[in-house]
Amino acid sequence: MSETSPTRSRPGGPPGGGRDTQGGPPGGGREGAVAGAGPVDTAWLVASVALLLAGIVAYYWFDTQHMAVRIAMVLGGLALGVVAFWMSAYGKAAWTFTTGSRVELRKMVWPTLPETRNITLIVFVFVLILGIFFWVIDWILAWGTRSLLGGGA
């Protein structure tokens, strides 16, 4: 088997040279698709959007009701929409992403207080220097323009 054979896998790559069993690109060409999501999950997603919209429509439809009732309708639609979203594979994938992000956030090395002060001071000084620089450039260009057009005193 030669090195250029399409069925030979690269080191660390998937078998078959990066193609799945159907011969398509890795992942089946469905970028961003949630694993295990089917028509029921799509229905949950549509239901979540519909519940949110129903709460918003109810807010305007029942405009004679007390404001607290109308706000409760929106919040109720939002709450039911969130519950419907979390019931789908999309909601479960979002929760998995959120928990993974929290784990990665804990791994982050945050700067110490003196480092934060020093960097902030550097940024302020740099902004001040650039402000003065652009003020001088603007003043020179305005002086030149007035001199050329005869509007200066």
Rank of each mutant, 00 (worst) to 15 (best):
I56P: 00
V103H: 10
S9D: 08
L148T: 01
G23Y: 00
S147R: 12
F97S: 12
T21I: 02
H66C: 02
I132S: 04
T42L: 08
A79M: 09
G144D: 11
D138T: 06
S5R: 04
M67I: 04
F124M: 12
M1T: 10
T96K: 13
V109F: 05
L78D: 04
P114Q: 07
G55M: 12
V74W: 11
G29I: 04
P111R: 10
I129L: 12
L78P: 01
I56W: 08
I137P: 01
P14D: 07
D20N: 14
A43S: 11
G32V: 00
D41I: 00
M108K: 13
G36K: 07
L130H: 01
R146F: 09
S9M: 10
L121F: 04
W135S: 06
L121T: 04
L78W: 11
A43L: 15
W110R: 12
W86S: 06
L121K: 03
G24T: 05
E31K: 08
R102K: 09
M73K: 04
L113M: 03
A68G: 00
P11W: 12
V74G: 09
G150V: 03
P14S: 13
V40M: 03
L141V: 15
G144M: 13
E104S: 07
V83H: 08
W95G: 12
A68H: 00
A58M: 02
A94D: 06
W95F: 13
V49Y: 08
S9K: 11
A37V: 06
W44T: 04
G38T: 06
R10E: 14
N118L: 13
V57T: 11
V123N: 08
G100Q: 14
R8N: 10
Y59W: 15
G151T: 11
V127P: 00
L113C: 00
G29N: 08
W143A: 13
G131H: 03
V123I: 15
Y90N: 00
G16P: 02
D138P: 01
A54L: 14
F134L: 06
Y59I: 02
A58E: 02
Q65H: 07
I119R: 13
G28F: 05
T42F: 09
G131Y: 05
V69M: 11
A58I: 03
P14K: 08
K92E: 08
G27L: 14
S88W: 02
P6H: 03
D63F: 15
G29R: 09
A33Q: 03
V103F: 11
A35N: 02
P111K: 09
G29S: 06
I119H: 09
R106E: 15
M67Q: 01
V40L: 05
V109K: 15
V125T: 13
G91Q: 04
L141N: 10
V123S: 12
M1H: 06
R106F: 11
A142S: 05
P39K: 03
A79L: 14
V69L: 11
V57F: 14
P11V: 14
G23H: 01
P11Y: 13
P14E: 10
T42P: 01
D138G: 05
H66Q: 09
A43M: 14
I71Q: 12
L148R: 05
A89C: 00
G77A: 06
A142W: 04
E3I: 14
V109Y: 10
I137A: 12
Y59T: 03
R70G: 01
T98L: 15
A47G: 15
